[in-house]
Every structure is written in C-alpha cells, then in structure tokens.
C-alpha cells in the first residue's frame, strides 16, 4: 500500500510567479483522483512539480511518499521511489529504440531497488512482460524497433506512455492530459489500461480538462483546480456536472476560464 500526501503545496516559476497556491491531497493505492480544471490553470505545473521538474520551484508545503519527503529528490530518485508521470507531450529521443529505452528504464529501477547494484532484467523475462503489456494495450510490435517518440502520432505517444507505466509498475501514477489527442478507440484502450493497473499496487491522479476519460477510468474523487487552488471537491458526479455546466461557476474573479 502506497500513500502520497500533498500538504499545502505552493509551486512557483523560477521568476517567482506562484502558479500553485496551496493544495492538499492524499492519494492511496487503489484510488483514482481526478484533477479537473480549465486550460492554463496550472494543472500541468502541478504534475511537473510533483515529478521534480527543475523549472519549477516548490515555494511552500511538502510532498511525501510513504512518509518520505520527495522534495529533496531529483526526478530519477522520485521515479525510483515509485512515482510516475505520463506526459502530455512526451519527448522524442532519436537513435534510441522503444525497446532499448524500456529495458534501460526497467533496469534503472531494478538497480535502485537493489541498492545501487546492477540487477538487469533477464532478456526472456523482459520479452515476456513486454509482449503481454503490448498486447493488452494494443501497441503494434513495429513501434518497438522505432526510435522513442520520434515521428510518433499523438496516439502512439500516449500508448507508449501507458506501456511504460505498465512495465515500470509505479506506486503512484500522475497522468497529465492523457486523453488529449486520442480518438475514442485509443482513449478506451488507454483508459482501460490505466484502470487495470489501479489497485492494491497503484493509485492514480488523472489530470484532465474534459470529463470524457472519466467515463472509462472511474474516479473515486474529483478535485476542481482553478486559480492555483482546489475550488471544489466531490465524487464522479461532480465531473459530470462540470461537463454540462462548465467551469465558470468555480472561477474566482479575474481568473481566465476556458478560451
């Protein structure tokens, strides 16, 4: 059982502009928390800050995973502790095949878990795990030999993000706008993939603008994020209400809404 605690978290840009202005959130294994909010509300900033992006500064509060503060740790160490971020816009790494990247990432985590001793996954085991996860997520085999995200369509990138998640088996996964750029079939496959992983081993934070993905990943909690704060919280019903009524009712004065 994993426990992620976000306590009065403030996040600022390097120039000091505060984007996240104090949020509290507790995520346990088996739970799905949806964070919904208008565009440009700072949702992605929150996701990046949780993962330790160097462009963002934690200006207050704390983030704890199983009681240990993540703030002093780099992105690599956070990943090694079991945090995962599915990127809204994954980056390309030309010359590095998907399969070699996946194996390196798995080995990096195994090494960390073996206290810094190399413990590479045996190739047959890697192939077996990979084949199973790919079939489940309907990732075409030919993607494995291609360079990571290089020339991939939006849908291919998102599937590869979820494939990484399935293989790296994080304790807490943050999905940043995973639904954007996906057609309905791809959305369903990806969302089912996420739902299958949520359980005793993993909790998830699903960041989204639209309610659409929540038809497939049932959220236990919905948090409305606007102006750097949670302005409303509820269950799945809240998401549906947002879909029909929009965010306007939750926007404080002077905070830009959608468009």
């Amino acid at each position: 059982m994993a426990l992620l605690e976000i306590k009065d978290l403030h996040v600022a840009l390097n120039d000091g502009t505060e984007i996240v202005k104090g949020i509290d959130l507790t995520v346990r294994s088996g739970e799905v928390h949806a964070i919904m909010g208008p565009n440009a509300s700072g949702k992605s900033t929150l996701a990046y800050a949780l993962m330790g992006h160097p462009s963002y500064k934690i200006s207050g509060g704390d983030v704890l995973l199983d009681g240990e503060s993540l703030l002093p740790l780099g992105a690599d160490e956070r990943a090694q502790r079991g945090l995962f971020l599915a990127f809204q816009y994954p980056y390309a790494v030309p010359g590095v095949t998907v399969s070699s990247f996946l194996r390196s990432a798995m080995n990096a985590l195994r090494k960390a878990r073996a206290d810094g001793t190399d413990d590479p996954i045996p190739i047959p085991e890697f192939r077996k795990d990979l084949a199973a996860a790919m079939e489940h997520l309907k990732v075409p085999r030919e993607l494995l030999g291609r360079y990571l995200n290089d020339g991939f369509s939006g849908g291919e990138k998102k599937r590869i993000e979820i494939l990484q998640m399935a293989l790296l088996r994080p304790q807490i996964a943050v999905l940043d706008e995973t639904d954007s750029g996906l057609d309905i079939d791809a959305l369903k496959t990806v969302a089912d993939g996420v739902s299958d992983l949520v359980g005793p081993e993993m909790g998830a934070i699903v960041i989204t603008h639209y309610q659409r993905i929540l038809n497939y990943i049932h959220p236990d909690f919905v948090h409305v994020f606007a102006g750097g704060r949670f302005v409303a919280e509820g269950d799945a019903e809240l998401a549906k209400k947002l879909e029909s009524e929009g965010y306007d009712a939750y926007l404080p004065e002077g905070i830009p809404g959608d468009g």
């Binding site: 993962m51 992105a75 690599d76 990943a79 990127f87 980056y91 010359g95 590095v96």
Partner: peptide, 24 residues
C-alpha cells in the same frame, strides 16, 4: 527530465541521448 522521470540518472539519461545521436 523526461528520461530521468523514468528512473535514469542524469548521466545515464545524457549518455542515452548521446548514444542515440551517434546510433547511425
């Protein structure tokens, strides 16, 4: 950052990028 968020250290991530660059 993308590669490090998968657990690779900074030097592992950089050398992966460089290895990819010289892969041809």
């Amino acid at each position: 950052f993308y590669l490090m968020s998968r657990g690779l250290s900074e030097s592992e991530a950089s050398s992966m990028i460089v290895s990819g660059f010289v892969e041809p």
